[in-house]
Design a protein around this nucleic acid. Structure first.
Length: 211
DNA sequence: AGCACA
């Protein structure tokens, strides 16, 4: 399809959120669609409330585009388009033998919180012939990065039916509890979000909370 | 109908 690109251009993002937090949140939302090569949140006035998410595969960008159109982040629905030009990372990838003509960029000044490459998470579907009722309606999250906020988590988990609330634990930024109305709904969210990353280094481990 | 790339 014409117009489809590796990079999606997002507008109508909140201008009140620090761009590092915005970036983490976008990473958390979009990493499920495939390898993210870069996220650019520019700080110039003209570019406020806009971001570019660069996927390794066009297909990932297409799925993200469809799935998250209008999805609310920090109270505002994202407006997603395809970028009109390819990102530098993509150009580099397409013509590896060519040097960039002008825009040079030193590795030391690059953001280092987006991985060079990232394995796509494969989520196993629940059930099988012997599916049984999950043991709890509360999920236990572990291996969260320090900067995780309850807002980021609720953004992700409220996408699934029956969501009630997120509870962070004082002095334990790495864990959290997420409550659903019933165990089945908790199980759906668990399977959908298993291994999601808020930062490239931390794949979240989701299990049912112990009773 | 605001398109970057410290």
């Amino acid at each position: 399809m014409p117009g489809q690109k590796n990079t999606i251009y997002i507008k109508n993002l909140s201008e009140k959120v620090r761009h590092e937090e915005l970036k983490k949140s976008l990473y958390a939302i979009f990493s499920q669609f495939g390898t993210i090569l870069d996220i650019v949140v520019s700080k110039t006035v003209k570019m406020q409330g806009r971001a570019f998410i660069v996927f390794k595969e066009v297909e990932s960008a297409v799925n993200a585009f469809k799935a998250k159109q209008g999805f609310e982040v920090f109270e505002k629905p994202m407006r997603i388009e395809y970028a009109k030009t390819d990102s530098d990372v993509i150009l580099k990838q397409k013509r590896p033998h060519l040097e960039k003509p002008k825009k040079t960029r030193t590795p030391s000044t690059r953001d280092d919180d987006i991985p060079k490459r990232m394995k796509k998470e494969t989520h196993r579907l629940p059930g099988g012939p012997t599916a049984e009722e999950p043991p709890n309606h509360i999920l236990f999250l572990a291996n969260l990065p320090d900067e995780t906020s309850d807002l980021m988590l609720s953004m992700l988990f409220k996408q699934y039916a029956g969501f009630k609330e997120v509870r962070m634990v004082p002095n334990r930024p790495d864990i959290a509890f997420v409550e659903y109305e019933n165990p089945l709904q908790a199980g759906t969210a668990k399977d959908a979000l298993q291994g999601f990353k808020i930062t490239p280094t931390n794949a979240t481990k989701i299990s049912f909370a112990k009773k």
